[in-house]
Design a protein around this nucleic acid. Structure first.
Lengths: 165, 165
DNA sequence: CCAATCTGGGACTATTTTAGTACTATTTAG
DNA sequence: CTAAATAGTACTAAAATAGTCCCAGATTGG
């Protein structure tokens, strides 16, 4: 349903935690405790984030993770990419095959454009904003502009992340 | 990967076919043949689209489907809604529970806003544009504006829908 | 009235994706 | 050397997605 996966959501929470204390180095276990997510899962996610160069790590005793760069320089798009691979709204946008439906397939092209537009929007949102550490002014640009409008902002529910420790 | 489901993609193709011949009434079988999708699948999709009032149907001999309203009045958001239900980027955006992570959960709120922004963008795109029957001028608004920019448009691949008839 | 041809609505199955776990290797401070 | 970390990989379980089938209801031509 055009939804991001739980893992991506978790990862954002982890990154937000790291962003809250940029100077400290936190271990996977600490982050698991703080976020109440499963230790194994947290560990896996951090590895992935490390692979995508969003966090840096030091191994060995007293090791841990921290953000690879300032939260302001990490975009939502990058987080998505790190966890879900380069995004493509439709399957056909990925391959280069021809499909049997030459006739109607301006459709593919159109979704593709939608795709790109969304992607660009996501690039404008930094981890700083996702973490609620605001500076809502400069960035959020296009998105924020659309949000301000005739309709009122719906009161958003608080997160419901459930997992057994 | 922030992707729409195959079925939604198929549905768009079907709608595009219908949009191409607004005056005719096409049967599920005809549409299946034209789009090369499985007859059963097409049938299911059309039922769903009918349920969401995107297409109208007449039963009995010489029955068939046609668009319920002009293609210009059907938005991408409506198509998404019809097939995937009201969209919510994260799981926590749906329920009203509290999650254990009160601390970091500006995150939920932020995704929520992203969500709404994307949704609003999708509302600006009509089936007419998705079908490649353009009038790219008036609508596409915010999205199109973002697309025009420093970067050049990547050449999009043609659709690769595969299914055995 | 009857048969043919449609749509309508479920129920069901297979496949794919996602989520979560476990185990082993490697690094490093003390 | 050892304890506490990360790194890598493989595996399992669960859930969502995709696709199929069947039968009931509607309509129309003969």
């Amino acid at each position: 349903m055009l939804r991001i996966s739980k893992l991506t959501d978790y990862a954002t929470v982890l990154l937000a935690r790291l962003a809250a204390e940029p100077e400290r180095q936190l271990t996977a276990a600490q982050l698991a405790a703080q976020t109440r997510l499963g230790a194994a899962t947290v560990s896996k996610l951090l590895k992935q984030l490390h692979g995508s160069a969003l966090v840096s790590s030091t191994r060995g005793l007293h090791g841990g993770y921290r953000l690879a760069r300032p939260a302001a320089d990490i975009s939502a798009a990058q987080i998505l990419d790190a966890l879900e691979g380069p995004m493509a709204l439709t399957e056909c946008a990925q391959h280069t095959h021809q499909c049997g439906i030459e006739s109607t397939c301006g459709v593919g092209r159109a979704w593709q454009r939608v795709n790109i537009a969304i992607r660009r929007s996501l690039q404008e949102i930094s981890l700083l904003e996702l973490a609620g550490m605001g500076v809502q002014t400069t960035r959020f640009g296009a998105l924020e502009r659309q949000l301000r409008g005739p309709r009122e902002l719906p009161v958003p529910a608080v997160s419901t992340r459930t997992e057994k420790p």
